[in-house]
């Protein structure tokens, strides 16, 4: 009984994860400019990965495989925001202007002298 319940839960997680991946892919194609596409890639990198990894973890139970899946999830969740930020920062420094809904004069401060954070 319990095993069937866990199996069904893991299927639901896997299928929704795959669905979010496809939605993110569609967003990657549909969003109008580079900065908005970063948000679409965010969907596929976060929720899709989290759901699929949780679903797979339920399939294997407590084992070395599950531990490795946890590590994969941790690596992904730590590295993807860093990569996304590096991309966005590089694009800003390169002078790529984001398309904005209003106040088109507001641009990120790429001309400021670098300050030490």
């Amino acid at each position: 009984m319990m095993a069937i319940f866990i199996d069904i839960l893991s299927w639901v997680l896997l299928i929704t994860g795959g669905a979010f991946g496809v939605i993110g892919g569609i967003g990657l194609l549909r969003f109008p400019d580079f900065y908005t596409r970063l948000h679409a890639s965010g969907i596929t990198d976060t929720l899709c990965a989290v759901l699929i990894v949780f679903g797979l973890m339920l399939q294997s139970g407590l084992s070395l495989l599950t531990l490795k899946m946890v590590l994969i999830l941790l690596f992904l969740l730590f590295t993807t925001p860093t990569a996304t930020h590096a991309l966005a920062r590089a694009a800003v420094l390169d002078g790529l202007e984001p398309k904005l809904a209003d106040q088109p004069q507001a641009s990120p401060s790429e001309e400021e002298p670098p300050s030490k954070p």
């Binding site: 679409a40 976060t46 925001p81 996304t84 300050s115 954070p117």
Partner: peptide, 26 residues
């Protein structure tokens, strides 16, 4: 903070300095 903002879709950190954070929101 910067990474959490980037991690949640809808907001991306563009620049993080000592006391403020510039972000792009969808």
């Amino acid at each position: 903070y910067g990474n959490s903002v980037t991690l949640t879709p809808g907001t991306v950190t563009l620049r993080l300095t000592r006391d403020r954070l510039e972000a792009h929101a969808l």
